[in-house]
Amino acid sequence: MTDNFALYRIMLLIRRFEERLLAEFSTGKLVGTTHAYIGQEANAAGIFSVTDAQDVIFSNHRCHGHFLAYGASSPQGSDPYRLAAELMGKATGLVGGRGGSQHIHWRNFYSNGIQGGILPVATGMALAEKVKKSGQIALAFLGDGTLGEGVLYESLNIASLWNLPILFVVENNRYAQTTPIELAVSGTIAGRFTAFGIPTLERDTSDVLEIQAAALEAVGSVRRNGRPFGLILHTNRFSAHSKGDDTRSAAEIARIREKDPLLIHAPRLTDAERARAESEIAAIIEDAFAQATADPFPKMKDER
């Protein structure tokens, strides 16, 4: 399992990457949109500290944090440079500039920008791993907003019915774009899983160690029982849903920023360790964006 320094370093990588990304929009190097993971870093860091590098991951529109943590947990290491290049639409990007922020693929990591639609796909991946007897599990990420999509419930039903090894991770940041959960979700999140006979574990924390412990239990349950599991993480998104669409009050944002996963975890490191993490990450981010900026744009191939 990943130690305190490594957990901090991954969270910091995500934080600084996303901050740089948002800054680059103002320089015109980035076009389109992005969905920053700032505030939710402990979820990805905690979960990917307990998964296997060969597990199959399906992420959503807010995928950068998942990708960076997934990469950092794999033996080959993370690849923030190729993510930066993808976001800039460069030929060297993860998918050659075709996908951009929401649509990436790298090793066993996949993401797509359609709410809900990825869930049966991830369920099918779990089925494939099961029949191939690979021992791997699937992880699918969804948010509170996705709870409105009907295909989620079709997927939960099938995953439970067919005993599929899949972990559904719900990151409830309490807002679907600008709509608060009170206006979008009836009943409970856990109740949605238990209705299908799927056990859940629920945490309301930004402490990466608590999330790591919960993830260890959740991932272990899926692997041990070959059955689906719901990990429900109540979390906080510090920045806007994408860009410039934050209707929350300054007071509310100030309040949730007190639950900063980096601040919570920082006291477990020495001053020297924190300084080392900052300087290492700063160099990685600088290199990644500088190299990506210098890279060429893709050329259109003749598709006929």
Binding site: V56, F58, Y110, G117, L119, P120, V121, A122, T123, G124, M125, A126, L127, A128, E129, V131, K132, A138, G150, V151, E154, S155, N157, I158, L161, W162
Partner: peptide
Amino acid sequence: PERVLTTPISEAAIVGVASGMALRSLRP
């Protein structure tokens, strides 16, 4: 019997599941 799977009435999920199987090298 192992490879013919009858499903709930969930057309979207069936095609999604098959799509995931196909991505992971089966031929549904």
